[in-house]
Nucleic acid binder design. Sequence first.
DNA 1: CTGAAAGCGCTAACAA
DNA 2: TTGTTAGCGCTTTCAG
Lengths: 347, 347
Amino acid sequence: MKGNSTLKYIAQQMGISVSTVSRALNEKSVVKEETRKKVQEMAKKYGYVPNEVARSLQKSSTETIAVVLPDISETFFARIVKGLENVMMQHGYMIILADTRERADKESQYIEMLYRRRVDALVLATVDCSGASATPFLESGTPVVFIDNIPDIVSADVITVDNIAASKVATKYLLSAGHRKIAVILGSKTETTGIERLEGYRQALYASGEEVDEELIEYGDYKMESGYEAMKRLLEKRRETAFSAVYVTSEKMTYGAIRAIREAGLTIPGDLSLVGFDIHNLMDDRPQMITTVCQPEEAIGKKVGELLLDRLKNEENGQKGIKMRLSPFIYEGDTVKRIHETESKYC
Amino acid sequence: MKGNSTLKYIAQQMGISVSTVSRALNEKSVVKEETRKKVQEMAKKYGYVPNEVARSLQKSSTETIAVVLPDISETFFARIVKGLENVMMQHGYMIILADTRERADKESQYIEMLYRRRVDALVLATVDCSGASATPFLESGTPVVFIDNIPDIVSADVITVDNIAASKVATKYLLSAGHRKIAVILGSKTETTGIERLEGYRQALYASGEEVDEELIEYGDYKMESGYEAMKRLLEKRRETAFSAVYVTSEKMTYGAIRAIREAGLTIPGDLSLVGFDIHNLMDDRPQMITTVCQPEEAIGKKVGELLLDRLKNEENGQKGIKMRLSPFIYEGDTVKRIHETESKYC
DNA sequence: CTGAAAGCGCTAACAA
DNA sequence: TTGTTAGCGCTTTCAG
């Protein structure tokens, strides 16, 4: 018999006006102390719980922000969400989560739904680099922060890891271990994560005077199966290409690649060296020697939160074209050594 | 200049009533085809997007469900959320995610916030087995489904893995590999996940005529660090206890335990056999031989979603005391073998 | 088929 | 300090 207690109901019971009840319950307004106490008593007695839906409607602000991403079961995304959620919760904002399963159509569909719900901001790890899916938010001036992939939109706010640095670190690591023929498995030809990670790889090779063998560059789609397939393709042409190391640029593709290597009867690092990406669980405990590049997720989530809070407080909505690149780490086998290629860059 | 288009605005522009516009835009209502077309045109022209906040207020249903859990960066929870989200999204429901960082105080605080937002249902992986934190929902008759830990409340709806079966499978696996002295690291003395996992361990030992050595039972708090510490304690008394295998009952504690074992200069399974819990990433690719018990997360998420959908559709709110236990798996080293101890049990 | 009116629960002027 | 009124944007009777 609870849950239907409203300001109106309390007001009626007490024979006073709704607005007085409202004021009494909102610390900021001025009411006679005595009235406030009585109202609070009654509110408790009737099990009154404010209805935020009504409040949202009237204030045209839902104190809710949306996070749209390709796969929450990727540790990378889960950790970003965790970092973000922590900051936002402290300020009374809650998070709506939407998992697109890497599908651009779902992405825009979900974003449309979220806009209808009038979330106050959108955090988007897009799989559609045109950035078109974010249109409803962009047009209405609702804050949007892109993480992971960078959209074509010049004025967009972006906070991501420095992908070029990440690949440079990974490649240099392998070069300095004596490898000359280094294969790479990328997640996308069109998304900036893929483009930049390739770029860093190229730069590192050029810098050390190595040729880039296009045969050593394979593509997947960030999912495990594609890492497995890409690795198999690389292994098939290993005779001609003679690579001795491989760099895989996403968590799940790394798992897939490792499986392919094992199935081929090869060992890591005995037969083939490998540098993975975002292998966090192994990182913490290192049950084996996997070297991995990692992104500072909690930091990304936190930065996104702070940026958003600023945007939301200052009412100066709209994109400002902020680009923030955070530094990746590399975790090298058993040694919990961290190499910072660059410090965070802000523009 | 967008984003402020409302039914009222369109109605004014067209010189018709708000209700007609509303009807025209809601497929179900009856309007002259011609009117509908014109309205739809105008709506598009003015960039009208329905305001779900207003709709929610009027329908007193937000089409939103809340998920409150201890740690979204645990693969176990992330996958449940993914499974659940998938089902709910297909029916127009969105998910609000709250991460309590295993803190009971945050848990009840968040649940309070969520109730104010009038989410239509709550999915709760509680760390407070009294179930008291869910009170606002329970009292108001809003559907609540518990996952993971089972609360004291008898009438509560619960969908979890069969923890006793999980431990039995794990322990039997080690017994059949010839181990007699098997240590176990549990996550909690008070939560049902801990209690039941201990129970399964005990039952398996009894069944094979082994004594239970209380010295071989250690407790952590599900976090990595505690797994590390618990393992260290076990190793310190290894001389007296002479255990040859250990069973660790959560993902992160497993990582911690492995680290402790490695730091002690021991190898798995050379010096010590280990069965872990929820080690999914390793499961998919198996970079090494870790045997692990796993829970069917996607299935749990899906079941939760289906139950909720049913509850929400049929308006017969309130707890019905449904208890559903899904079967765990065991993944045994390199072999992708699955042992089903039991089939899903429904009560 | 369409309009007028009421109301979801709350806040916020504006008076009193 | 308190009450009255209006309205956030929408749906839904109830008349017409």
